[in-house]
Write a protein that binds this DNA or RNA. Structure first.
Length: 299
DNA sequence: CGTACCCCCTGGCTGC
DNA sequence: TGCAGCCAGGGGGTAC
């Protein structure tokens, strides 16, 4: 599902409405998603105020005034819908999205009602997503999900040296390494393909071959680093404009989810879009997931 | 230890 | 239009 740009788009859609809002009621409709819901979740959060809606990698973080944090992974099909008052929207919905979650759909698993009358509904057909509570007094650095995460690629301190350091430890192909959230967060199967294509780096390259003997990044890894940032930023920008259009619109599930035009993803058998390249986009499978690339210009 | 696989689950699309 | 088969944006757990 959602990779970093989509999660960020959802965050930006929720934040203005949820920051500072007090939770009046939490209804949990089933015992689990991917994992069981945290014990006594409703009891622990009813009456609490959301300080802000944040993000770490692909996780949404609902930080509470009492110091606890509700962590939500959207998995493949998770989405949030806000309803109540004049509002009814699902930030970053899928282009083929099902009916908007109003709180009583078959896949509406978690419903949070706020003091101001707003309702936030978490909908997740495939239930690969999950909800986790970082208890008050437990720092994010100690949390089992958050502590293992690698650097944020859009933070100013992210650079090719850091990536080189993390990649030098692994013997796996670069495609797999960049999907590993302990090396760098935020990339999923779509954007990792796009990043490698734009960088001219083969997904089959062994990660350590992009690091020089002295531990410094190769030219290719510098390109990868820059393209990670560029691709994610472009996608966020595109999602941001989508969100603008979506705000306040009720029942519209036709908006495109990925406004960015993919250069390789889903384009098996089509011509490589790099100017001057006569290659054809190939599809292979790496770790059971589709990889799209041009063997001619990605080396 | 690091790495490779196998799933968890529903739904949309394609092709017969 | 029915249905089987395939595919899907994630990532934890486990077996090597």
């Amino acid at each position: 599902m959602p990779e970093l740009p989509e999660v960020e788009t959802v965050r930006r859609g929720l934040s203005p409405h949820l920051d500072g809002n007090r939770i009046q009621k939490i209804e949990i409709r089933r015992p689990d998603l991917r994992f069981p819901f945290p014990e006594d979740l409703s009891k622990k959060l009813t009456g609490e105020v959301i300080r802000n809606v944040g993000r770490r990698g692909k996780y949404l973080l609902f930080r509470m005034e009492n110091g606890s944090t509700l962590l939500n992974s959207l998995g493949m099909s998770g989405r949030w819908t806000l309803t109540g008052g004049e509002i009814s929207f699902t930030p970053g919905t899928f282009a083929h999205g099902a009916a908007i979650g109003t709180g009583d759909g078959p896949h509406d698993h978690l419903v949070i009602d706020f003091q101001d009358g707003l309702r936030a509904t978490y909908t997740d057909a495939r239930r690969f997503g999950y909800i986790h509570l970082v208890e008050s007094g437990v720092s994010e650095a100690e949390d089992r999900f958050l502590s293992v995460l690698g650097p944020e690629p859009l933070e100013p301190n992210f650079n090719a040296d850091i990536l080189a350091k993390n990649l030098s430890k692994t013997s796996s192909p670069i495609k797999n390494a960049l999907l590993n959230q302990s090396i760098v967060v935020g990339l999923g199967n779509i954007y990792v393909n796009e990043v490698l294509n734009r960088s001219g780096v083969s997904p089959l390259r062994i990660s350590s071959s992009l690091v020089k003997k002295n531990g410094k990044p190769t030219k290719g890894l510098e390109l990868v680093t820059n393209q990670i940032r560029a691709v994610l930023l472009e996608a966020i920008d595109a999602g941001g404009s989508t969100l603008q259009d979506f705000r306040g619109v009720s029942g519209d599930d036709d908006l495109g989810w990925f406004p960015v035009n993919f250069r390789v993803y889903g384009r098996e058998g089509e011509k490589c879009l790099k100017s001057g390249c006569s290659g054809i986009v190939k599809r292979i499978v790496q770790s059971n997931r589709s990889t799209f690339f041009c063997a001619q210009c990605q080396r």
